[in-house]
């Protein structure tokens, strides 16, 4: 594997070696390597680009890594990945896309990830987006995530995008069954002229389903962020939306949360706050010997961790 590939893999999937267990690495639209296990199968789709990841009922302590690398300028990649997670399975899924665009063409990775989560299954999903390269070429991501949660299932979805992506529209749609719990965590840092938009649409249909949305973002320079999380409670359920943003320089952050209760026992809460770093925090860290820049970096790092 090339040094650049390794660097991108480390950034998007914390992978420093070829991972153990099931994996599928896709580079510039082609399959680079694949590994399957007794419980986890990966099959290339026949009708469109993408893969099916099939996790057997009752699988425990296994992981799947499916990073995507784009290193050619002007590369436009579109994939459909479907995850079939069997009843009672417990699995960690690490996805992510690293783009190195050293040229002037537009690099673009759009993907639709669909999760079919079985009864009482537990999933932790981590997705990181990372862009680098000095060319003028734009680096664009438009990921879409669809989550269907059967009764009693649990999913924790962590989506991270730190720098390097010029434009992103991230869409997440979810349906939560009885007693199921969905946690959506987003961490985002934009700078320069970047634009990032997040749309979340989650319906809680089953009794005692619950949703928690935690969004922490930082907008620097002249970047813009728009956030539209929406939760609909169609049954006795709970939801908590929490959006926290730090705004710096000449950036703009818009946060438009919506909670829609369609059942008398739906308990829905949203909290949204936007503000700059408190001057006191910077001063406190400076009194410990940090420079102003170090203090700011420490505060942002903690906030986005």
């Amino acid at each position: 594997m090339l040094a650049l590939d390794k660097e991108l893999l480390a950034a998007v999937a914390d992978l420093h070696e070829i991972p153990q267990g099931a994996m599928n690495i896709r580079k510039n639209g082609q399959l680079l390597t694949r590994n399957t296990t007794a419980n986890i199968d990966i099959v290339t789709k026949k009708d469109k680009p993408g893969i099916d990841i099939i996790i057997k009922e009752g699988t425990k302590n296994e992981s799947v890594h499916i990073p995507v690398l784009l290193t050619e300028t002007g590369m436009q990649d579109m994939v459909y990945n479907d995850f079939f997670i069997g009843d009672n399975a417990e699995v960690l899924i690490v996805a992510g896309c690293g783009i190195h665009n050293g040229g002037d063409g537009e690099s673009r990775h759009d993907g639709i990830h669909t999760f079919h989560i079985g009864k009482n299954a537990k999933v932790r999903y981590v997705e990181k987006h990372y862009g680098q390269g000095d060319g003028k070429g734009q680096r664009i991501f438009n990921p879409e995530t669809i989550i269907e949660m059967a009764d009693g299932s649990y999913a924790e979805m962590e989506m991270v995008q730190i720098k390097g992506i010029n434009s992103t529209l991230r869409t997440t749609k979810g349906t939560v069954g009885a007693g199921a719990r969905l946690i959506l965590e987003e961490r985002l840092l934009t700078h320069g002229e970047q634009y990032a938009e997040t749309r979340m649409d989650v319906e809680v249909v089953g009794e005692d389903g619950s949703v928690q949305v935690i969004s922490r973002t930082v907008a620097k320079d002249r970047s813009k962020q728009v956030f539209y999380p929406r939760v609909i409670g169609k049954n006795k359920c709970r939801a908590h939306l929490q959006c926290d943003s730090i705004i710096m320089d000449n950036a703009q952050v818009r946060s438009i949360p919506e909670i829609d209760a369609q059942h008398p026992d739906a308990q829905l809460i949203h909290e949204a706050a936007i503000g700059k770093i408190a001057g006191e925090q910077i001063i406190k860290l400076m009194t410990l010997g940090l420079t102003e820049e170090e203090a700011e970096a420490t505060i942002l790092q903690g906030f986005l961790k």
Binding site: R216, D244, A278, T287, G289, I299, G302
Partner: peptide, 17 residues
């Protein structure tokens, strides 16, 4: 701070994260 002066605030700030 580097010269060896330290100050514990009357009202300490809080840090998320």
């Amino acid at each position: 701070a580097k010269m060896g002066i330290g100050y514990s605030f009357q009202q300490a700030p809080r840090f998320k994260g």
